[in-house]
Design a protein around this nucleic acid. Structure first.
Length: 305
DNA sequence: CGGATCGGACATTCAAAGTC
DNA sequence: ACTTTGAATGTCCGATCCGC
């Protein structure tokens, strides 16, 4: 099944450059990556980059226990998409992270050759638009002058509280961090080509300001395309200032979250719960092994591997 | 053929080591 | 105090298996 990235892969630059200082290619567009975020849709013909490179894999901070057992992609929402799909939403709980071992002695670390490697990395990380709008490093770093710009659609904020009462409040996210996938998100949509800038009588620009590369205009369904009809809401006020609040389309385009997904495929009488049970039963051995690998209190480290 | 399983690549976290 | 490093730990891709 098309497990896909619930969050955009283009939000982060690789946090760690390779030890040899070579930056991995980050120009891959989600359409060419199997882990295409489900809230993103294919680009129009001609806008798809040709470089078949991969983006960095993005992980949730904490997978639910079911996804963890299955070694499958989870997401920040609870219940997660996978649990909802299999009808085990009530069992979708965060897995418990093991406490990291402390007091582990390490040898002296080796200095890297190029001392400037980190400086270069930081310069990429802090790329900022002229007007102060931060741009994900992927955009700036992945757009050499010889290639067309890669349109970037990034979740930047949530709809106002109460607009989507069927959704729980999103968990607090760090600046720049993607929003949980099931909570409706507002995206900044790229503008292909701003119109010529004109100036009003008081000197205030009319039309798009100098660098309106993104403006809040698009709400993309948080559902997989097969469950929701994707639509692109045109900018209602083509000449409005980019910081103007634009009303969102009414939420009734979609069914409330739990009903938005089909029931799990039935395998016969009682099969609705049978599938996940079988799945868990067959995986118990693995999880038992994992539990056995937990540190022994006051004793030797149970290192797996 | 679709879904489950699982090895292992990849990402993240964070404490020790090193530097200023 | 801050930065760098590297290993522990977790996530999940993708090949393969398995049952219908």
């Amino acid at each position: 099944m098309g497990d896909s990235n619930p969050e955009t892969d283009s939000q982060q630059q690789p946090s760690q450059p390779s030890s040899d200082g070579v930056q991995p290619q980050m120009t891959m567009h989600p359409i060419t990556y199997s882990g295409m975020p489900m809230h993103m849709y294919p680009f129009p013909p001609g806008m798809v980059p040709t470089h078949p490179t991969r983006t960095k894999r993005r992980q949730v901070k904490n997978a639910c226990t079911n996804c963890q057992k299955a070694c499958k992609k989870c997401d920040d929402a609870r219940p997660c998409l996978r649990c909802v799909k299999y009808g085990i939403a009530e069992e979708c709980v965060d897995s418990q992270r093991k406490e990291r071992q402390k007091g582990i002695k390490r040898g002296p670390y080796k200095k890297r050759d190029g001392k400037t490697a980190n400086v270069e990395q930081q310069q990429v990380d802090v790329a900022v638009q002229p007007q102060g709008m931060p741009v994900p490093p992927t955009v700036t770093a992945a757009v050499p002058s010889t290639t067309p710009p890669i349109p970037y659609v990034a979740p930047v904020t949530y709809p106002p509280p109460g607009l989507y009462p069927q959704y729980p409040a999103p968990p607090a996210a760090k600046p720049g961090e993607a929003a949980p996938m099931y909570y409706p998100q507002i995206f900044y949509a790229p503008i292909p080509a701003p119109p010529p800038q004109t100036t009003g009588q008081d000197g205030e620009p009319v039309g798009y300001p100098a660098h309106p590369q993104f403006y809040p205009a698009t709400f993309i369904a948080p559902y997989p395309p097969q469950y929701a009809t994707p639509y692109m809401m045109p900018h209602p006020h083509p000449h409005a200032r980019p910081d103007a609040q634009i009303p969102l389309a009414p939420a009734h385009h979609y069914a409330p979250y739990p009903q938005a997904y089909p029931k799990p495929p039935s395998r016969g009488p009682g099969a609705e719960v049978g599938a996940p049970q079988m799945m868990d039963a067959r995986r118990d051995g693995r999880m038992e092994h994992a539990r056995m690998a937990e540190p022994i209190p006051g004793g030797a480290q149970a290192k797996s591997g």
